[in-house]
């Protein structure tokens, strides 16, 4: 469904991504692993249309996404929960989550089902739906950020470091949420810099180092690969 073909991205004249090729198929969960500054976030932002490509293309179900602004990429069915998961401080939790039903509208029953599914993934959110976005903890903000992207009813969800900066107590809740999303059949492309956080159920792993993908394979293959082990030793 998502194809990244030979994508190169420069930021302020510096080459950040070089000739990246990557596919995500229906229902897959692909984990992009690499240390900080390797290019994971840049790739996700380039897929979302926030960063322009110097070369290459991003395709969604065969149609080019390259050059589309972020809001149109989102409306095609790609949800994004960025690393800094600030929620909209002036909106309530419920308003934050309902956002996607306005921008990707659906019949009322379907829209309600989308919001209901977002709460089903993170049931804790139902207890503070009326709370303002500014009153949430880091873990709560992360849950709202993922739930908000889910309410768009994306076929593909991009998660940028979903466990980053969270207390160990909240990590199992987020991991369980991601497992529920995967079980619903949605594809996920997840960036992760901490190898300890990679879920066992990922379909494939791509290791990115200095803007290039240096390994593709299963989690087991990655663990056995000496080059990946060398890179992983530099990861948290």
């Amino acid at each position: 469904m998502l194809s990244v073909e030979g994508l190169s991205v420069d930021i302020a004249g510096t080459s950040i991504l070089r000739d990246i090729t990557l596919d995500v198929n229906e229902g897959e969960i692909v984990c992009l692993v690499g240390r900080n500054g390797a290019g994971k976030t840049t790739l996700l932002r380039a897929i979302m249309g926030q960063l322009a490509a110097r070369a290459g293309a991003v395709k969604w179900r065969g149609a080019a996404l390259t050059g589309l602004p972020p809001h149109l990429v989102a409306r095609r069915g790609i949800g994004f929960s960025p690393e800094e998961s600030e929620v909209f401080a002036s909106l309530s939790v419920a308003q934050n989550i309902a956002f996607g039903t306005w921008t990707r509208p659906a019949p009322a029953a379907r829209a309600q089902a989308r919001v209901a599914f977002a709460y089903e993934v993170f049931p804790k959110l139902t207890t503070y739906m009326a709370r303002g976005g500014a009153e949430l903890s880091g873990g709560e903000r992360k849950m709202v950020s993922i739930a908000r992207a889910l309410a768009l009813d994306p076929e593909l969800l991009l998660l940028d470091e979903p466990f980053e900066g969270l207390s160990p107590a909240i990590i199992p809740t987020i991991a369980a949420g991601i497992a529920s999303i995967r079980a619903s059949g949605k594809a996920i492309l997840m960036a992760e810099s901490n190898v300890q956080h990679i879920p066992d159920y990922v379909s494939r792993i791509c290791v990115i180092e200095r803007g290039e993908i240096i390994f593709r394979g299963s989690l087991a293959e990655a663990r056995a690969d000496p080059l990946v082990r060398q890179v992983a030793s530099g990861l948290a």
Partner: peptide
């Protein structure tokens, strides 16, 4: 309305508002 809330959201964080499908 959703329009008003989108306007406030864009004031809070323009980039993230766009990621949610809003033509800021």
């Amino acid at each position: 309305s959703p329009f008003g809330l989108a306007l406030k959201a864009a004031r809070d964080n323009e980039r993230k508002t766009a990621f949610l499908g809003v033509p800021v």
